[in-house]
Amino acid sequence: MEAIDIQPWLFRVEPLEGESLSHFLGRFRRANKLTPNGLGKMAGLGGAIARWEKFRFNPPASGQQLEALAVVVAVAGDRLQGMLPPPGVGMKLEPIRLGGACYAQSPCHRIEWQLKRMQGWDRHQLRLLSECPNCGARFKVPALWVDGWCQRCFLGFGEMVKYQKYL
């Protein structure tokens, strides 16, 4: 009997405008029932996926790594590059921040929210949240945002806009 090399097929997931790489990777993995290590093995990236989901970009993702990921997720490498923080711009790893008004319009984590220079979101003139305004729980990394609500009290991210303060 001859062994057949069966290639896995994957569901396509389209990135959302402004979406962070962490959030996109989590959505892609869930749609395809993959772990961070499983996706890393498929792309030949080892543990890089798990690091990137936690905004750990030291060392930074190389063009070669992004192209390898692009082949697996069927998204152009330059589009993946746009999900990363701009070169030379400081980024906050923690706490994870959220703009409730923006999330209500487009349910995804935006990479801009994690930039050190961002205290608020200019588009809505509101301060970013770093914890649930209802129960005080810190937000999990965006790759783990499955249902769009606080993991402790279940307040929806879009509903948190009423707790955000103006800039």
Rank of each mutant, 00 (worst) to 15 (best):
M1C: 06
A3G: 06
L10N: 05
R12C: 03
E14F: 13
E14Q: 09
E14A: 15
S20W: 13
S22M: 04
H23I: 00
F24W: 04
F24G: 00
L25P: 00
G26K: 11
G26C: 04
R27D: 02
R29L: 11
R30C: 05
R30A: 10
R30M: 01
A31Q: 05
A31Y: 04
N32G: 05
K33S: 10
L34W: 15
L34P: 05
L34E: 02
P36S: 15
N37I: 06
N37K: 15
N37V: 13
L39W: 13
G40T: 13
G40Q: 06
G40C: 14
G40E: 07
M42T: 00
A43M: 03
A43G: 09
G44S: 05
L45G: 10
L45A: 07
G46P: 09
A48V: 01
I49E: 00
R51Q: 10
E53L: 01
K54T: 07
R56E: 11
R56L: 11
F57Y: 14
N58D: 14
P59R: 15
A61I: 11
G63R: 13
L66A: 10
E67W: 14
A68R: 15
L69F: 13
A70R: 08
V72M: 09
G77C: 00
D78I: 09
D78R: 13
G82K: 13
G82V: 06
P85C: 12
V89G: 03
K92T: 04
E94Q: 14
P95T: 08
I96D: 00
I96E: 03
I96F: 11
I96K: 08
R97V: 05
G99F: 14
G100E: 10
A101N: 06
A101D: 04
C102V: 11
Y103L: 02
A104G: 02
A104Y: 07
C108V: 12
C108W: 02
H109D: 01
H109K: 11
I111E: 05
M118R: 13
G120P: 05
R123E: 04
Q125N: 12
Q125R: 15
L126T: 08
L128S: 06
L129Q: 03
S130H: 15
P133K: 14
P133F: 14
G136K: 14
A137Y: 11
R138V: 11
R138E: 08
F139M: 06
F139S: 06
K140R: 15
A143D: 02
W145I: 00
V146E: 10
V146S: 10
V146N: 05
D147I: 00
G148N: 01
C150A: 13
C150R: 04
Q151K: 05
Q151D: 02
R152W: 08
C153F: 12
C153T: 03
C153P: 11
G156A: 13
G158D: 07
M160E: 01
M160H: 07
V161T: 06
Q164E: 03
K165D: 04
Y166G: 00
Y166K: 06
